Amino acid sequence: MDANNPQAIRRAIRSGQHKGNTSGLARGFVQANLAILPSDWAADFLLFCQLNPKPCPLVGVASNPGDFQIDSLGADLDIRTDVPRYRVFENGECVNEVEDIQALWRDDLVTFALGCSFSFEEALLADGLEIRNITEGVNVPMYRTNIACKPAGRFSGDMVVSMRPMKPADAIRAIQICSRFPSVHGAPVHFGDPAAIGIQNIDAPDFGDAVSIRDGEVPVFWACGVTPQVVLEQSRPPFCITHSPGHMLVTDLPNSKLSVF
């Protein structure tokens, strides 16, 4: 597998050759979180994303219910097969994790693709900042918080954040860099005391893996595309599908297209 070629990566995922998380793959290209909902829930979810652009930055939406391609995100792209692992929800509860959703596909499903923090990680690395989860070869740690999202229709809930430890000066630089990427969560929402945003144990993430935090470092928190999964748990649509945290849709869209300057 060519780890820098989005189409080759999707083919490897589709064939079962690659089953792990997608962090560090397809440098230079956008990776997307997924939320797949019945059409009668889609309008409310679209409004929720529009009102909460930091945790839910839209980078693509299927043109019609039942479409399993989003042409703007890549050639030979199949939403049903090209994510390493999916989560299946019924009435707000995750009932299964699968590697292929062809057997679950329905003509009324609408796919939403949301920007992912892996894009801004590349910009931070290019500036010489370390990304601990990449250094340690694990999935980024993610946490539920007490930061309320703006409600929209049937959707409401609290934000999920991802965390990367940094020295305070590096955290300030990260804020400056990530402000250029509003389509992939933008600047951090918090750094410092985790308890201030409702995180009681920084060593026990709700999603992903724990990473080491060294002396002199502070945890830096970004809005995270796993937020819709928590919102879906609370809003309880009868059926929906998401990506499994860290297992993204690799697109053909260059990260450079998302920078505002």
Results as ranks from 00 to 15, higher is better:
Asn4Phe: 09
Asn5Leu: 00
Pro6Leu: 01
Gln7Thr: 13
Gln7His: 12
Ala8Met: 01
Lys19Tyr: 04
Lys19Leu: 15
Leu25Cys: 07
Arg27Leu: 08
Gln31Leu: 00
Leu34Met: 07
Ser39Gln: 15
Phe45His: 04
Gln50Lys: 15
Asn52Lys: 11
Leu58Asn: 01
Ala62Arg: 02
Ala62Tyr: 09
Asp67Met: 07
Asp67Tyr: 08
Ile70Tyr: 03
Ile70Met: 05
Gly74Lys: 07
Ile79Arg: 08
Asp82Val: 02
Glu90Leu: 09
Asn91Tyr: 13
Asn96Phe: 05
Glu99His: 14
Leu104Ile: 12
Asp107Lys: 12
Ala113Tyr: 06
Leu114Phe: 03
Phe120Val: 02
Phe120Tyr: 09
Glu122His: 13
Glu122Pro: 10
Ala126Met: 04
Glu130Lys: 15
Ile134Lys: 05
Glu136Ser: 13
Gly137Ala: 10
Met142Ile: 01
Thr145Asn: 13
Ala148Pro: 12
Ala148Cys: 09
Pro151Arg: 13
Ala152Glu: 03
Phe155Val: 05
Ser156Ile: 06
Met159Tyr: 01
Pro165Trp: 09
Met166Leu: 15
Met166Cys: 06
Ala169Leu: 10
Ala169Pro: 00
Arg173Tyr: 02
Gln176Met: 15
Cys178Phe: 00
Arg180Trp: 07
Phe181Glu: 02
Ser183Gln: 11
Ala187Gly: 07
Val189Glu: 05
His190Pro: 11
Phe191Val: 12
Gln200Thr: 14
Asp209Leu: 09
Ala210Ile: 14
Ile213Phe: 05
Glu217Cys: 08
Val220Pro: 12
Val220Cys: 12
Ala223Ile: 00
Gly225Val: 02
Pro228Val: 01
Val231Ser: 06
Phe239Gly: 07
Phe239Thr: 04
Cys240Asn: 06
Ile241Leu: 06
Ile241Ser: 08
Thr242Trp: 03
His247Tyr: 01
Met248Pro: 01
Leu249Gln: 01
Asp252His: 06
Pro254Phe: 02
Asn255His: 09
